[in-house]
């Protein structure tokens, strides 16, 4: 079965949600008014079958964003060429409006660990990550967005801040950034810095997409708060407030609700996207007014 080529469909500055198999039928049956969907690339790397059938039908109706979770851009080892080819094939087949991956690693030697592991922020890692981002962008033939991580530990080997590191990757590769606002709150709490300071210092002009999700509260070795990036519940009000601040800085940016574990029913997830639209709608209106003012 050869798939018909899709016309490119840019991701609008609206709320989208992560696409889950549990919701395929509800989406196709009820045609909800939602801006876009995002997929985890690795879930669509089978040769055929129902996932591709559903995704094709949904891509027919909605813009789609491609989000990789297994490329291991932060690994010391070379990128997996077979995996890059699989990503390129998905990119060509579904013509997603955006493509993103993580500032993290998940493979070492021949083992894939299926988690987004942290890297030390220093010149060696920066050079390695920049080379990998270059290779991804060349192979895919498009610009990628790199996502800021959630972290639970720090490295003695780090010599720069996360923001300095991200700015360095952008400067060397021309890539864009995916700003995960939940990750800011989680990492800031876990690393004991101020989330607002981090957000205000973030190079917002390079942000092409925002992620929001829920986190799970735990405690660390000293009994102090340790937040886990669990994607298993609604967006925390504190994170939503931080998001409002991000949108005030950036204007309306495509924003995704990630809910990957304990996946709720479709109406619950849709309602979560509505919380985000509540912030985005006035921001879209403001930018429309601005462009009208410029036109006049």
């Amino acid at each position: 079965m050869t798939a018909a080529a899709f016309a490119p469909m840019p991701i609008p500055p609206r709320a989208g949600v992560g696409l889950k198999p549990e919701h395929y039928a509800a989406i196709l049956d009820t045609a909800p008014d939602i801006g876009w969907f995002e997929i985890h690339a690795e879930n669509y790397m089978g040769a055929g079958g129902p996932p591709h059938r559903y995704l094709t039908a949904i891509r027919d109706r909605y813009p789609l964003s491609l989000h990789g979770v297994g490329l291991s851009i932060g690994a010391a080892r070379p990128l997996d060429k077979d995996h890059l080819r699989r990503l390129r094939a998905l990119n060509e087949r579904y013509q997603p409006g955006l493509f993103s991956e993580h500032l993290a690693w998940s493979s070492h030697d021949t083992v894939f660990m299926s988690d987004l592991l942290p890297v030390p922020y220093n010149e060696e890692t920066l050079a390695r990550v920049a080379d990998h981002v270059d290779e991804v962008q060349e192979t895919m033939g498009r610009r990628m967005l790199l996502e800021n991580p959630s972290t639970y530990v720090a490295f003695e080997a780090s010599t720069m801040s996360e923001i300095e590191f991200l700015k360095g990757v952008v400067r060397r590769t021309g890539c864009g950034l995916l700003l995960d606002v939940n990750n800011i709150h989680v990492s800031a709490t876990n690393q004991r810095y101020d989330a607002v300071d981090y957000l205000d210092a973030f190079p917002i002009e390079h942000v092409g997409e925002i992620h929001l999700a829920g986190y799970a509260p735990e405690t660390d070795d000293n009994g102090d708060p340790l937040l886990i990036d669990a994607h298993d519940r609604p967006i925390d009000p504190l994170v939503l407030r931080l998001y409002e601040r991000a949108i005030a800085r950036a204007g309306a940016v495509p924003t995704l609700v990630e809910w990957d574990n304990d996946v709720p029913d479709w109406p619950t997830l849709f309602a979560e996207a509505e919380r985000v639209e509540h912030v985005l709608r006035p921001a879209r209106r403001r930018s429309e007014e601005r462009s009208l003012a410029v036109a006049v």
């Binding site: 660990m113 299926s114 030390p120 639970y152 720090a154 490295f155």
Partner: peptide
């Protein structure tokens, strides 16, 4: 070695989050 908490001290419980994430995701 060199994996620490924000107080620059060893943090086995924090590292355990990754161990738990990997084993439970797989």
């Amino acid at each position: 070695r060199g994996v620490v908490g924000p107080d620059r001290r060893p943090a086995p419980r924090r590292f355990g989050v990754y161990r738990n994430n990997v084993v439970s995701a797989l």
